[in-house]
Every structure is written in C-alpha cells, then in structure tokens.
Amino acid sequence: MRRYLVLIAYEPWDWSSASEEVRATFFEQHGAFSAFVAEHGRELASAALDDTDTATTVRHIDGEVVVSDGPFAEAAEMIGGYYEVELPDLDTAIEAVQLLPPSYSLEIRPVIAIT
C-alpha cells in the first residue's frame, strides 16, 4: 500500500449559490470516490478548504519572516481541498480520482516518510 495526497484544484466558483441538484451531484461523486477508496485501500484524511482570498502565506525572505495575503501562487485554479488515501498503486489512484467531479484538476502526490 502507498500513501497519496490528492490535491483538488478548480477555478473559483460560488458553492453557496449552487442549486440543490448540483450539490447532490457533488456529494454523490465524492461518495463514489470514498467508496472506491474504502474498497481498494483506506482514506486517512480529507478536508475542503475556504477560498484562496482567505489564505495567508508565510515565507522567510532574507532572514525575515514575511507574512502576506494570498496563496502560494496566483493561478486561475486554486487548491480547494484534499484527500489523503492509502491505495495499492498509482493506477488505482488515477482510477479513484476520476470519480470526483469533472470540474476538478487533481494532483496526486506520493506521501513520503521523513526519517
């Protein structure tokens, strides 16, 4: 089994104004993902994140701690949530994330052990 972090990115949109049908579809797709993961491995953690305009970035620049408004990188897409899962291999992970809403871009990152 391998551990992967699945980062979910999408173009900012207004969830609060989404229709009941749209919400139901999203929940259904996330449910299908979770069911698939449970069948082939296990889900370790997950979260939905608030919009990037609420993000704060902390960097060390020339020995100074610089706190700034906004996410790491300005991009059309923002990281909106994540799953941490344990699955047998990358192919299974690719198959799993295809169950998530198609409006997402998904980055699959292996989780490593720091020794």
Partner: peptide, 14 residues
C-alpha cells in the same frame, strides 16, 4: 518508484 507506477497489465477496458 516514488509515485508507485505499477508493474502490471491494466484491466481490459483500460
């Protein structure tokens, strides 16, 4: 090795 690309033949539909 790191990403876990399998040494395997995928399912027939893939």
């Amino acid at each position: 090795v790191a990403a876990g690309i399998p040494f395997a033949v995928p399912r027939a539909d893939a």
